[in-house]
């Protein structure tokens, strides 16, 4: 009697486990579809001609709707190779500066006891709450004074400033959880504070650096605002700005827009793959107890 009851209960439990699993996966799957759908749509339509895009936006490119005209336009009109190079230079340089300066600031805030530590921390992360675009006019004036308008450096500096607050915030929180012993051990081993940072701390925070990199990368790559204002010259155009030439006031060359957007996804994917390789969990396990 009890036996039957208990197996019945076990079966019910298993069934419940299975149904929650199914529900969870349904939700996840739904979310994935919603998230990926626009991307797929962009890529699909980039292989169609104008008529194909409008007559059957959801259909696969085939027969008379298939066309590479978008890609042909992108590759012949304008200087997309330069735009790509610009985007990549700006994104990678800004990311590098965000990670380096952010991690160093976070290390100092988490590791050293000094007066105004808390105040400085708050000051550094205040930027999370104040959108940098509010300062556009001042930034533009500053860049004009510094003679940096229409240079990639202007963009790099602005994006570094934009990305630092979140980076400092996340990294400081994480650095506070790092074992103090391991840094002290390095001190006893005779490392300078800089080498402790680069040789002991940085390897320990690599997964978090990768996370911060992914988070900071997308807004920089996609930004249209600052390239438009600070670097709209043809030599300094970024991809997002370059695409705009196909969007006229009266007509939009959709094939070209979609083709350039499809190409623009590739470098982001590449960078993401690079960082996600670093996102190996548990890299710190074994360093300290447990």
């Amino acid at each position: 009697m009890t036996n039957i009851a208990s197996t019945g209960r076990a079966r019910a439990g298993r069934a419940r486990g299975l149904s929650t699993k199914a529900a969870v996966h349904t939700v996840l799957l739904g979310y994935t579809i919603i998230a990926i759908f626009p991307v797929i749509l962009v890529i699909l339509n980039s292989f169609k001609n104008r008529r194909g895009i409008f007559s059957d936006p959801l259909g696969l490119p085939r027969g008379e709707t298939f066309s590479m005209e978008g890609y042909a336009t992108v590759l012949t009109q304008g200087d997309f190779a330069t735009y790509f190079a610009n985007s990549i230079i700006v994104t990678v340089s800004a990311l590098f500066l965000i990670l380096l300066l952010g991690a160093m600031a976070a290390h100092a805030l988490a590791e050293y006891r000094f007066r105004l530590n808390t105040l400085l921390g708050i000051y550094l992360i205040l930027g999370i709450m104040v959108p940098i675009r509010l300062g556009t006019v001042a930034i533009l004036e500053l860049m004009v004074d510094l003679n940096l308008v229409n240079t990639l450096l202007a963009l790099i500096l602005v994006y570094t400033a934009q990305g630092l607050p979140v980076a400092v915030f996340i990294l400081t929180e994480f650095m506070r959880t790092l074992s103090r012993d391991i840094k002290d051990c390095a001190r006893v081993d005779g490392l300078s504070e800089y080498r402790i940072f680069f040789e002991v701390v940085v390897p320990l925070i690599r997964p978090v650096l990768a996370t911060v990199a992914v988070f900071s990368m997308i807004p920089i790559w996609n930004d249209l605002w600052f390239p438009l204002i600070l670097a709209s010259g043809d030599a300094t155009k970024t991809v997002t700005l370059g695409v705009q030439q196909f969007i006229g006031q009266y007509t939009v060359n959709w094939s070209a827009v979609l083709a350039s957007l499809s190409i623009a996804i590739l470098p982001v994917l590449g960078l993401y793959a690079l960082f996600s390789r670093q996102l190996i969990a548990g890299i710190t396990s074994g360093a300290v107890k447990g």
Binding site: D181, I182, D184, V188, G190, P203, T284, G286, A287
Partner: peptide, 20 residues
């Protein structure tokens, strides 16, 4: 004098091994 020049070595409770 900094730790490294004191002629000491320290073993920590949490082992503090370099994980990498």
């Amino acid at each position: 004098i900094v730790p490294a020049d004191r002629g000491i070595a320290m073993v920590f409770q949490s082992y503090a091994l370099y994980p990498h």
